[in-house]
Write a protein that binds this DNA or RNA. Structure first.
Length: 111
DNA sequence: AGTATGACGGTTT
DNA sequence: AAAACCGCCATAC
């Protein structure tokens, strides 16, 4: 195995992590970033934003939220994402936040 | 090569 | 408590 071309930039690596999030669970950007090698949550969000329609069907980007347990204030899919999460079995609080104690993803290997 | 940005996060005002 | 600001780090132009 010679020098392998590292096409798996953080970008793809992040996708791989997100794909490992089980249904009914959520993870925040910084968390995924930590699993992808310690990149900042911003890079994770950037990777999610770069997902194509096809990849969006492969990557549960909807399960990735901010550390506040809420949908990002930037307002991308907003309502849509919340709706998808509810279909996953995740319950939202009256203030629109998710109970991390109950839905936070344990990790890529500790499911 | 440099500048701008972005689905974040934490600190400061 | 809410808003503004800076810092992080990779992609886009």
């Amino acid at each position: 195995m010679a020098k392998k071309k590292k096409e798996d930039s953080l970008f793809e690596r992040i996708r791989r992590i997100v794909k490992q999030i089980p249904p009914g669970k959520v993870a925040y950007y910084s968390q995924v970033g930590a699993y992808c090698g310690g990149c900042s949550g911003r890079v994770v969000g950037f990777a999610m934003a770069s997902l194509n329609a096809e990849e969006a069907k492969q990557v549960p980007w909807q399960r990735v939220i901010n550390i506040k347990g809420r949908i990002s204030p930037h307002g991308f899919g907003g309502l849509l994402q919340r709706e998808l999460l509810e279909q996953e079995g995740i319950e939202f609080r009256p203030d629109g936040s998710i109970d991390f104690e109950k839905y936070l993803w344990d990790g890529p290997n500790t499911e």
